[in-house]
Amino acid sequence: MSDERERTTGTGRLVTGLAWALLLLGLWLWGRAVTDVPRGTDGPAAGDVSAAGPVDPALLPRAAAPLGDALPQRVDIPRLGVQAPVMSRGLDTRGAIDPPPFDQPGVVGWYGAGTKPGAPGAALLVGHVDTWTRPAVFYKLSTLRPGNTVRVYRSDGRVAAFTVDDVRVLPRAGFDAHQAYGPHRPGRAELRLITCGGSFDRASRSYTANVVVSAYLTGTTR
């Protein structure tokens, strides 16, 4: 009986490990291609690519207790003047998370199979930096700084307020999905906002980096 239990436990760990590895693979592909621009057209205007690293946690507000599960409906970023609807997105045929359609540049995509904003873990939100003719929803994402606020309106009537604690531009070469998208502190409700960054490579018709903004839950209102 003991041997059978150990085999069962070992199998469960293996399945969990494989599922996590597949998710990280998909996120790695997402990090490399989530906001790639479509093929066969001229290059777009580039967004701002400055970034700020982490600050002393003592200078930021304390983390709030995580909330239960509820669907995100809208994202507000006061410093950027962003008020954007949210759509759930899944994986494409390559296993990467599908961003919002290019004909909806003002929409933010949420990885619907992952953590819900406000719940424990890191919820993933992605938006385009620009189109071929104009800036998109996350055009100025890299100008956010630690201490700035991101609000997520949820289907349970709560507004989850997140405080930015880290802004990074991560090159796609050698991209580390776990570093970019994994929770920074176990048990916290965290948020990742991702878009294109770096320079635009005309040969591959894509950007050379990703802007990754990390934030954590610091309050809720109704």
Rank of each mutant, 00 (worst) to 15 (best):
E4M: 07
E6N: 04
T8S: 07
T11Y: 05
T11P: 01
G12R: 12
G12H: 08
V15I: 14
V15D: 04
A21K: 03
L22W: 13
L25S: 15
G26T: 15
L27W: 14
P38W: 03
R39T: 13
G40H: 11
G40S: 06
D42K: 10
D42I: 08
D42C: 01
A45Y: 09
A46T: 12
G47A: 08
G47I: 12
A52L: 04
P57C: 10
P57N: 12
P57V: 06
L59C: 05
P61M: 11
R62D: 10
A63R: 08
D76L: 08
I77P: 02
P78Q: 12
R79L: 12
L80E: 05
V82E: 13
Q83W: 01
A84Y: 14
R89G: 08
L91H: 03
R94S: 14
G95R: 07
A96P: 01
P99S: 03
P100W: 07
D103P: 06
D103R: 13
D103F: 06
P105G: 05
P105C: 06
G109N: 06
W110I: 04
K116I: 00
A119M: 01
A119V: 04
P120Y: 00
A122D: 00
A123V: 02
L124D: 00
L124P: 02
V126W: 03
V126H: 03
H128W: 14
W132M: 08
W132Y: 02
R134E: 10
P135R: 02
V137E: 15
L141F: 04
L141K: 01
L141A: 08
T143A: 12
T143C: 01
L144H: 02
P146H: 02
P146I: 09
G147C: 14
G147D: 13
N148G: 05
T149S: 13
V150E: 15
V152Q: 10
D165F: 05
R168Q: 10
R168Y: 09
R168W: 08
V169W: 00
L170N: 06
D176Q: 11
A180W: 01
H184G: 14
R185D: 13
R188V: 01
L191K: 15
L191Q: 10
G197R: 03
G198C: 09
F200W: 12
D201G: 07
R202L: 10
R205F: 11
N210E: 10
N210C: 01
V212E: 02
S214E: 09
T221A: 15
